[in-house]
Design a protein around this nucleic acid. Structure first.
Lengths: 192, 192
DNA sequence: GTAAATGCAAATTATTTGCAATTAG
DNA sequence: CTAATTGCAAATAATTTGCATTTAC
């Protein structure tokens, strides 16, 4: 009856995001299915992975995803196209692809791991505290600085995460709208 | 939690650290048990929480912790002093204190939430991916850069979080990972 | 006295795994 | 053919919760 912290999942750029999710199925992502081979599938083949039907489907779904879906979401998308797939396979595949360096696992909180193809280049997230929307960005100076800080502490930087919480500039006059307090979760679990 | 701070390097002492639980009760943490009331307990009282024995104990354990223990570790520390406490209570208390803004929850990977009292001042974390240990740090340049990035995106920075994941310099092994689970993220179970 | 807190065990949620049947290469 | 892959269900792991019983205020 309460579900603490598991409220909003995948508030990414799904649905209400004007982003690039809704391009016609033809050029879905960059060149998704050139001749039936998705980008991820190609990577799988290159690394000598057996390409089963379900594997190929998951690869395609991933290639077409511009967001950071969790396993359940991937399963939903894949299952919608071919019900001959089990969630255990999605879990196994996603893990395999991560080990192969094809996928990146993110711990955005919310209790579920979320994945995205690597090579999106290093980027981070800015969360609009009023709407909960997530905006991706990248900044080289930050990458350099992060590496430098780690080095100063005696570490080689393996990965890092930067999350900005901000409010849109033309601050809404407090008179008109009802103030939406605390759109920000604490540290872990929620949000995306 | 705005952020401006002088560069400080406060290493986190987890697990195998002798901690300072055994220093003469005078200056234990800051003023831990001045007259039997830990800092966290005081905060609890201020917010009108009922102080049961177990609650008080958890509060004290937290006040004396300089690291970022997970629930199991908190339970271990508390249970060592008074076995009349169940892990369910620790879970409930930790959640309550987080809601009250007394604790901060972190998701450092490894599958468990980890907590620390708020008000440690603005700082960020570097997580040793091999040991799960956490090192706190602050960096002015980063604060400035974060603000600037947000501004460029059209936002006023409200808060931000930076987490570095690193490996100690003399790299342990290049290939053939010793732990079976993924090297990052799912750090298995090292005592926090 | 009364609403809140606790312990315990059972329930949930996310993810993994054993095993027999299938299948890619 | 043979080792890898899959589905399913049962197993884990972290965390939450129902409920009867204490307890702080």
């Amino acid at each position: 009856m309460n579900c603490r912290g598991r409220d909003m999942l995948a508030a990414d750029q799904e649905g209400p995001q004007p982003s690039r999710m809704d391009t016609p199925a033809s050029v879905t992502r960059e060149e998704a299915d050139r001749e039936g081979i998705s980008r991820i599938e190609r990577l799988c083949i290159e690394r000598g992975l057996k390409m089963t039907g379900q594997r190929r489907l998951i690869a395609r779904v991933l290639s077409e995803s511009a967001d950071h879906p969790d396993v359940e979401e991937l399963y939903r998308r894949a299952h919608a196209r071919d019900s001959h797939i089990s969630i255990a396979t999605v879990y196994r595949t996603v893990r395999l692809l991560e080990e192969k360096g094809i996928l990146e696992r993110h711990d955005f909180g919310g209790g579920r791991a979320r994945y995205e193809p690597t090579e999106h280049g290093p980027h981070h997230h800015l969360i609009d505290v009023d709407t909960g929307k997530v905006i991706e960005f990248a900044d080289d100076r930050h990458e350099a600085l992060a590496r430098e800080i780690a080095a100063r502490l005696g570490f080689e930087l393996v990965d890092h995460r930067l999350e900005l919480f901000g409010r849109r500039f033309p601050e809404p006059k407090p008179e008109a709208g009802p103030p939406r307090r605390g759109a920000r979760g604490r540290t872990g679990r929620e949000g995306a």
